[in-house]
């Protein structure tokens, strides 16, 4: 067997495959993909890795293989702690391992590792409490996204108040980049808060809920909304004229109070007044 070094590209493809393999390094080395890149005989003969008296070739590679899954599962567990609570250690580890096979990291930053978790959860047909977990994953991802949203300067409440009410039909507002609105099938925020308070509750039955997630300063906030307030805010965030968005509330609803709260919470960064 030749001891000529393998081309770097092939060596990296081989090691990358072995490290990411969901089984052990020995499982990976025995597989077709690894053998096509580097013959098993070359590995066994010590032509690829310098022999180590305490570890076999597979053993050395296992240090990397074991670390890969452990590290990335830990990251997902940190971002999806409430999901981990529902699924348990083993269940979450299996879920995360499948997720990483489908969505390996392609980004320098681990902040975005979990961005496909809600969609992936939806596709897991045998997952217990799947519909609830889709909501929960969406909420937890939303909190991370609000935390990491680009910097912004909120529009001063004075700037909005300075526009005479008769011109509200011509005002369009720009939401800050941390604002996220969710219509859920379950009362997921109550569950999430109970988990955060370390007083977890049972997985709830379906019942619609509406949630605003945003960042103010360097803190992320969640606010449960009524369906009507949610719709008004949704229209404002979509760029509908202020006057029109507010007019969609039902008579008697405290729409002025909602709007004051939205403004005071710094949900908007700009207003444009359209010309007639």
């Amino acid at each position: 067997m030749s001891r000529r070094p393998l081309p770097l590209r092939r060596l990296q493809q081989w090691m990358s495959h072995v490290v990411q393999h969901p089984g052990t390094a020995a499982d990976a080395l025995a597989g077709r993909t690894a053998r096509a890149l580097v013959p098993a005989a070359a590995v066994e003969a010590g032509d690829v890795l310098v022999p180590n008296p305490r570890l076999s070739a597979a053993g050395m590679l296992d240090v990397y293989n074991g670390g890969y899954l452990m590290r990335l599962v830990e990251v997902l567990q940190s971002d999806f702690g409430a999901m981990h609570h529902v699924l348990g250690d083993d269940g979450f580890r299996r879920f995360a391992a499948r997720y990483l096979e489908k969505h390996p990291s392609r980004h320098p930053n681990l902040n975005v590792l979990g961005r496909h978790v809600p969609a992936f959860t939806k596709a897991q047909r045998t997952l217990p409490h799947r519909a609830f977990l889709v909501d929960l994953a969406t909420l937890e991802l939303s909190v991370s996204c609000a935390f990491d949203a680009p910097e912004f300067t909120p529009l001063a409440t004075d700037a909005i108040a300075a526009v005479p009410q008769e011109r509200w039909d011509r005002i369009r507002l720009t939401p800050n980049p941390s604002v996220q609105l969710h219509a859920f099938r379950h009362p997921v925020d109550e569950f999430y808060q109970a988990w955060k308070n370390e007083k977890p509750v049972a997985v709830p039955k379906p019942s619609p809920s509406w949630l605003l997630v945003n960042r103010q300063g360097d803190r992320v906030w969640r606010r449960r909304l009524s369906r009507s307030a949610f719709r008004v805010l949704q229209r404002l965030c979509a760029g509908e004229p202020l006057g029109h968005a507010l007019s969609t509330a039902k008579p008697g609803e405290p729409v002025a109070d909602w709007f004051r709260d939205f403004s005071q919470d710094g949900l908007f960064t700009a207003l444009r007044v359209a010309r007639r």
Binding site: P5, P7, L8, R9, L11, Q12, Q13, M15, S16, V19, Q20, Y64, G67, Y68, R71, L72, P104, S105, R106, H107, P108, L110
Partner: peptide, 21 residues
């Protein structure tokens, strides 16, 4: 190196200490 084929394994993987590398 930390990955190949656009993937990031988020680990510090060794390089061979060869002329080519």
């Amino acid at each position: 190196w930390t990955g190949v084929n656009g993937q990031n394994l988020h680990d510090l993987l060794p390089l061979p200490y060869t002329e080519a590398a």
